[in-house]
Design a protein around this nucleic acid. Sequence first.
DNA 1: CCTACCGATCGGTAGG
DNA 2: CCTACCGATCGGTAGG
Lengths: 199, 199
Amino acid sequence: MSRRNEILDRAGELFSTRGFHATSMRDLAEAVGLQGGSLYAHIASKEDLLFEIVNKAADAFLRQAELVPRDLEPEARLRALVRGHLEVIVRELPRAKVFFDEWRFLSQDYQRRIKERRDAYEAYFRETIATGIAQGLFPQQDARLASLFVLSALNWVYQWYHPDGPLGLEALSEQYANLILAALRNARPEPIAAPGSGS
Amino acid sequence: MSRRNEILDRAGELFSTRGFHATSMRDLAEAVGLQGGSLYAHIASKEDLLFEIVNKAADAFLRQAELVPRDLEPEARLRALVRGHLEVIVRELPRAKVFFDEWRFLSQDYQRRIKERRDAYEAYFRETIATGIAQGLFPQQDARLASLFVLSALNWVYQWYHPDGPLGLEALSEQYANLILAALRNARPEPIAAPGSGS
DNA sequence: CCTACCGATCGGTAGG
DNA sequence: CCTACCGATCGGTAGG
């Protein structure tokens, strides 16, 4: 069981740096101190291994979202969601990378299962934004596009964040949340010319 | 020369959907109507092929940025940069996907060359934002983090955008630019308690 | 958990 | 541009 988790962790690191298809089971075996064939005493297949890693990342994201109190007002809720999302990326960077980059190499069935969880996760953001719009905190706008915007800004962080860089989780989360809330609060079209004011 | 471009385009599509390492040269040969070995009459190696695709995407992004008039004010400049970026993604989705997802499988030397061009591209955004801050259009903030935020939101679009979906380039660009400008204009910490007003 | 092995497939080349 | 081939490596299994 401990061995199994060691394999999962190492695989997450290797898949995240070299990519799923460029990592051989022998690479992984060596990284964990086994012979190639011995891995199959612990895991069923390379693809199952990928699924477990991706699914663990989905666990982490969803757990954070579930932790956000239901009764928070939308802005505070969104702040907490942003903070939780970035925390998972910062804390579990290899797994998060695999989640974003390698999930597409899963078989259809596994992909469907991940997609369901990802959709459930996105709904936390979309519904929080929709509530904010309904309450008049944010101007009228497309909640779906707005949540895609927010999640886009958040997701890409795994591409450039360095855990030993100068930017800590706290500072990052606060500045990102500030930018996101500023966007949602003030996102409306440029001042529109008055009706009939010309071509 | 036409054959060569056909190979490049097909390779871009295959690499973007299946991934570089999961696409075999025989897959590509079949897609283009050749035998496996015959590809090497047109290209030097699989990796060179990847580099050409990624580099073409870099061309497209940089060309758009260079087209933005230097004398525009920062907000209009940023709008044009946003629009240009999304245009490349929407117009050349497969190449853009390869650019973002597969460039890491290039050899060190090729990676360095791409990184240089990517850095030059990011500088357009960062410097435009920095100018906006210097002119007082945007409140004081970290221009580097702000440009990472903006490019994060923009880059991820290739993950969810469907060219035949309801959202056209114009509507997408305008709404994204609105959100981004709203974020930059209003990104400041929560109202801070007046100095000396408490613990 | 290892040794030894399986068939399949890989990127690339020689020779025409 | 094709045929035929190269050595290397792949994920996975049998048998212990």
